[in-house]
Design a protein around this nucleic acid. Sequence first.
DNA 1: ACTTACGGTAAGTAATAACTTACAGTGTGA
DNA 2: TCACACTGTAAGTTATTACTTACCGTAAGT
Lengths: 112, 112
Amino acid sequence: MRAVNYRNAFAALGDPTRRRVFERLAHGPRSVGDIAHGLPVSRPAVSQHLKVLKEAGLVTGHADGTRRVYRVDPKGLGQIRAWFDQFWEGALLSFQAEVERDDVGAESEENS
Amino acid sequence: MRAVNYRNAFAALGDPTRRRVFERLAHGPRSVGDIAHGLPVSRPAVSQHLKVLKEAGLVTGHADGTRRVYRVDPKGLGQIRAWFDQFWEGALLSFQAEVERDDVGAESEENS
DNA sequence: ACTTACGGTAAGTAATAACTTACAGTGTGA
DNA sequence: TCACACTGTAAGTTATTACTTACCGTAAGT
């Protein structure tokens, strides 16, 4: 059995196409062919993405006739959110503490 | 000017080592060598990870003597959170309409 | 039973990226 | 100025992975 942690979830959502698949599912349950229709990849590719998303605990799938209907799994979503929230608070706090200590008004550094 | 979207952020946090670097920064600003000390990768690897995190808008870096001190960028964090929240609500609502599942309590597994 | 629709899996390929060592650049102290 | 400490970058290697086509199993309609 897979880990179903935020670890895999982040890796899963890291891929653009896979994130696209996930976003479609957020609008409601959909079949595989339905998801693939409109995406620039083949249906097998979508199946593989769904497999990864499922193992990451982000989606669940159940049979409906010959179709496979997938939907977002709120449990997996909650795990990422939990990890992120712990982060959000901690990082924000330690940042605000810095701001108050010495003035950090200059955010001039940008990447190339 | 870079996109600084949640897109790059997810890809950035997808890598375990890079996420490790990011987590260290959440405890407070640190120098590159400080981050690398204790990680199973070389210092140049950490530098490369920091570059990716910076381009993803997740961290910022400023010079302090010969050291480079990095810290978490709350702006980048906020962008992911915004994307995630929009998702969280929408997906959860359309799902809760169907069934009432249990919450996000189950989190115990580890791997590798 | 036959045919069709739908989707998961196998196998193979090509692009990405995470890592290494070697080197260059910059700031600090004697 | 010389030596040292710290870090970013270059170049190269290796493992991962996202994608393709081909195939197989299963469910529904005729």
